[in-house]
């Protein structure tokens, strides 16, 4: 996968004429979106509030189904997946703006939650959660509850959780939206490291153009459509 992060990899996501309506067609959140996302890319999705960024990310994460058009993951239609939970648990990791940690579980337990869907033993789950939390710099917080952590720490727990089953794709919806600049920088640094060192494909929705500038490519959206795709010069090297 390191190879992939350097050059142009195979197509991970392919969207064609992707539409999503809510409330029986009254709200058109996506009005026909086309794009390809390749292995090892870091794609930033930007655009004004309400333009459909989160909706798009939910389609990518198979949290919701498109109304029209096709979206495939590595050549297979996501809407045709027999069991999207397998895809969600092992292929992708999801990081949300509001962390979405489970309040009644400790930090370590939150990271272990996705591992129930894989065949890991209890001991293996604990060890792996520990390793992941070490890698996000939270080894001293294993037994704390989310409510006892700062926003930045919570988001790092969420990142550790998203990596629980070693996915190849990370989907992040404004992961720094609820964080102050210092914590935001820390989280971005972590995500960038995953992209660069592990070659993970990273799709990140953000309002922060500074973060978007770090991406290999930016997809700009407006009113449910892609209006522009740019590859910042900074990344050409």
């Amino acid at each position: 996968m390191n190879e992939a992060s350097k050059g142009v990899g195979s197509v991970v996501y392919e969207a064609r004429g992707l539409k999503k309506n809510y409330d029986g067609g009254q709200v058109a959140a996506l009005r026909g979106v086309d794009f390809d996302i390749r292995e090892g890319e870091f794609v930033a999705i930007v655009g004004p509030s309400g333009c459909g960024k989160s909706t798009l990310l939910q389609m990518l994460g198979s949290l919701d189904k498109p109304s029209e058009g096709s979206l495939s993951y590595r050549g297979r239609l996501i809407s045709a997946l027999e069991d999207p939970s397998d895809y969600r648990s092992t292929e992708i990791g999801f990081v949300f703006q509001s962390f979405h940690l489970l309040p009644t579980f400790t930090v370590s337990e939150n990271v272990q939650i996705p591992m129930f869907e894989t065949g890991l033993s209890r001991g293996e789950r604990e060890v792996r959660a520990h390793e992941l939390l070490v890698s996000v710099g939270l080894s001293h917080r294993l037994k704390h509850f989310p409510s006892e952590l700062s926003g930045g720490e919570r988001q790092r727990v969420a990142i550790a959780r998203s990596l629980a089953n070693r996915p190849s794709v990370l989907l992040a919806d404004e992961p720094t939206g609820n964080l102050d600049s210092e914590n935001a920088a820390h989280v971005v640094e972590l995500l960038l490291k995953l992209h660069q060192e592990l070659g993970m494909t990273l799709v990140l929705v953000t309002h922060d153009l500074g973060i978007a500038a770090l991406a290999t490519r930016t997809i700009r959206m407006k009113d449910g459509r892609v209006v522009d795709e740019t590859t910042p010069l900074t990344h050409a090297s």
């Binding site: 969600r88 939650i113 129930f116």
Partner: peptide, 15 residues
């Protein structure tokens, strides 16, 4: 909401 989280991190409906 929490069940939504469990589904989002890949828990099967059966689980």
């Amino acid at each position: 909401h929490e069940i939504g989280i469990l589904l989002a991190v890949g828990w099967k409906r059966r689980r």
